[in-house]
């Protein structure tokens, strides 16, 4: 399956718009078994997740450690296989990857869905120049001739704000912000429909973070690539995403369009999460209502019965402690999993 120059040109153009969702996820679960013998336990990292991403959408998944946001990203990128649920990419069911036919599917999936990591060094081979890393990604997907790959690698590096000469340097020679640009260039090289970015700015210094956030936003606008942005940084999610999904211990607590979620959070967890994030303005900060949650996050190995948030929720009742609420649609294209919303 060699592709032609024609493909290369298409990839630099905006993506075509279809009505069919790019990605539909239904009842996704990912359970890990940890320990053995008497210490054997099942971590229910993702425990029934529904998600729809349309072409060109930017969806954010937020939550604290152990909420399952990173695992969700890895499963959707094809780096882990799910333990349950359905993943439909562009109308086609994603199948189990153990069969021969599906390996080709998986390669095509990896071309369509690319990932950016918190630590860009994790996705760049330290022993080869960064330009080669991009060429390699194209070669794996059998895109273009060697000359075309090289030209495309240079063009991509320039597109993310680096110079052509930098293609011959090694990852260690770059700053954190530059490496993340290279990670983005490499993810975009194969012309994906969806880029899953897992905490892409968390390891960067404040003064560099805005550069990378702006770059991702420009690329989304110019190329029409959909982004799934996974982060604990609520403020950056607010700035970047059209829709936000709030996770807690493997479940979706609330899902809403950006404006609605930040202006009027419905779920008590979302309210507490937003109140906990300090705003960089001492005057507003002094006037904000403070909801300080007590207690620690429960372990995802033994999530509380009923609503998973019930152990920390200021509004919890007996119903919450026994019966898990379903994610229920609300007016305005949003949904929340709370008995009292």
């Amino acid at each position: 399956m060699t592709t032609t120059e024609h493909d290369l040109e298409i990839e630099l153009d905006p993506k075509p718009v279809h009505d069919r969702p790019l990605l539909e996820v239904m009842g996704l679960t990912k359970h890990f078994t940890v320990g053995r013998g008497r210490t054997r336990a099942v971590v229910r990292a993702v425990d029934g997740l529904d998600l729809t991403i349309r072409r060109g959408d930017t969806v954010g998944i937020v939550g604290e450690s152990g909420c399952g946001k990173t695992t969700t990203g890895r499963v959707l990128a094809g780096l882990e296989s799910p333990t349950g649920g359905e993943i439909v990419v562009d109308g086609r069911q994603r199948v189990d990857e153990s069969t021969r036919a599906s390996r080709r599917d998986l390669r095509s999936l990896r071309r369509r869905i690319q990932m950016i990591f918190q630590d860009p060094l994790a996705s760049l081979d330290p022993r080869i120049p960064v330009g080669e890393s991009i060429v390699e990604a194209l070669a794996t997907q059998r895109i273009g001739t060697p000359q075309e790959r090289r030209a495309r690698a240079v063009a991509l590096l320039q597109r993310v704000g680096l110079s052509a000469a930098m293609a011959d340097r090694y990852p260690a020679e770059f700053s954190g912000g530059q490496r993340q640009r290279i990670g983005i260039a490499r993810a975009l090289a194969v012309g994906p429909d969806l880029v899953i970015a897992d905490e892409p700015t968390s390891a960067l210094d404040v003064s560099v973070r805005a550069q990378v956030v702006n770059l991702m936003r420009d690329l989304r606008d110019d190329l029409g690539v959909a982004f799934l942005f996974i982060s604990h940084d609520m403020a950056t999610v607010r700035y970047l995403c059209d829709e936000v999904v709030v996770m807690y211990l493997g479940r979706v607590m609330e899902r809403a369009p950006r404006e609605a979620l930040f202006a009027e959070p419905k779920h008590p967890y979302t309210q507490a999460l937003l109140a906990a994030v300090p705003v960089p303005d001492p005057v507003r900060e002094a006037q904000r209502e403070r909801v300080v949650l007590s207690g620690d996050l429960p372990s995802p190995v033994a999530p509380p019965p009923g609503c998973r948030f019930s152990t920390r929720c200021p509004l919890a009742t007996d119903l919450c402690r026994t019966t898990e609420p379903e994610l229920t649609p609300l007016p305005g294209g949003r949904a929340a999993a709370c008995h009292y919303v």
């Binding site: 404040v206 003064s207 973070r209 403020a235 607010r238 930040f262 705003v279 960089p280």
Partner: peptide, 10 residues
């Protein structure tokens, strides 16, 4: 620095 940080409100 102050201009580069997004906030959860405002």
């Amino acid at each position: 620095l102050l201009a580069s940080i997004p906030a959860v409100d405002g």
